[in-house]
């Protein structure tokens, strides 16, 4: 998940005839579902696109810790606190794992993180929304991790081996997070007070549309999708994934006894899918450009953490060098 509008650098997809012999061999491997590994030849565009996508994904995991971190000191019970802590720890782990996958492509983690802090690269728009109540910890787990899973389940079959393997591992944990999130909401709706139930509905109202935006622009506005699909970096279109998510989520929404803030949301017997209203694309592009509710704070928090920790990392390095010197002297 967590990758929106990933630039491929390709204006259109080349035909096999137009490709160089190396490119053709590469494309035939992709078409035959053979995984590409780090040591294999790959077109520069493929490599760059993957670096962009995986780094965006990794940044999203790390920035995604912040909206949940906002409630970790206020979690309501020991059980919920421990669950949320474990979830956030998993996300830091996903970030590390994805940065490693990205580094197999020759990219440098610190450089990519610098780009994030300079506002040059993106992370998922969803994490620029504030978490305003405890119910948001349920909603983020259910909707945000839910949307992520829809994307990531498909990405388990992505053409780049290290990314695909990262997705397989991450999906297992995300599914667990999603069930936990849904359980939070279910408990509040079933046994909560009126105030707590309102908290749930308010949370869904705020996160519903931003969750749908996680899948990126609609297919006709997604200029990079075709190349990413040809390379099998992407396996399904944004609109297909969004529809899958809605179709699986609406029954869960109804089971909760809640509603979505979309008057056009209804089952379409003919299509065999839910119809839904138009996404506010202006809001989507605004948030992506940096004008979301929390863009400034999220990037600032991350930048301050890493910049403020420079002396810590320098000390660790200096100490390690001294220890090494001592060992050499002793030998």
């Amino acid at each position: 998940m967590y990758a929106q509008l990933v630039e491929t650098g390709a204006k259109r997809v080349k035909s096999l005839e137009e490709m160089s012999p190396e490119e053709r061999e590469f494309q035939l491997k992709i078409d035959a579902e053979t995984k590409i590994e780090a040591k294999n030849w790959m077109p520069e565009g493929y490599r760059k696109t993957l670096v962009r996508q995986i780094s965006q994904h990794a940044h999203s995991e790390v920035v995604g810790m912040l909206p949940e971190g906002n409630w970790i000191t206020r979690a309501p019970t020991l059980k919920r606190k421990l669950q949320l802590m474990a979830k956030i720890q998993d996300e830091a782990g996903h970030g590390l794992y994805l940065y490693s996958a990205m580094e197999t492509l020759g990219a440098d983690r610190d450089e990519e993180i610098d780009k994030l802090h300079e506002g040059k690269v993106k992370y998922s728009s969803i994490f620029n929304y504030p978490t305003l109540s405890w119910a948001d910890m349920g909603t983020v787990g259910w909707l945000v991790d839910g949307a992520a899973i829809v994307n990531q389940v498909v990405l388990q079959r992505t053409s780049y081996g290290p990314y695909s393997r990262a997705m397989i591992r991450i999906c297992k944990e995300e599914s667990f997070h999603q069930r936990q999130g849904y359980q939070i909401l279910l408990d509040l709706m079933r046994e909560g007070t009126e105030e707590q139930k309102q908290m749930v509905q308010d949370s869904i109202n705020r996160f519903w549309w931003p969750s749908l935006m996680m899948f990126g622009p609609s297919d006709d506005q997604s200029p990079n999708s075709q190349q990413s699909m040809a390379w099998k970096i992407k396996r399904k279109s944004n609109d297909e994934l969004r529809q899958m998510f809605i179709d699986q989520t609406v029954p869960q929404l109804e089971f909760l006894g809640c509603t979505a803030p979309d008057p056009d949301l209804k089952w379409n017997e003919e299509r065999g899918h839910y119809d839904f209203g138009e996404i506010d694309w202006q809001e989507f592009y605004d948030v992506l450009k940096g004008n979301g509710p929390c863009n400034k704070e999220r990037v600032e928090t991350r930048k301050n953490a890493i910049d403020g920790g420079a002396w810590v990392r320098e000390a660790a390095k200096a100490y390690a060098e001294k220890q090494q010197q001592k060992q050499q002297n002793a030998a």
Partner: peptide, 25 residues
């Protein structure tokens, strides 16, 4: 927990949360 997302390195983020999890557990 107050340090969540604010550690000096991602590895420290993991370690701090790990220790915190042990302690709250």
């Amino acid at each position: 927990c107050e340090l969540c997302g604010k550690a000096p390195a991602l590895e420290e983020e993991m370690a701090l949360m790990n220790v915190a999890l042990d302690l709250v557990g």
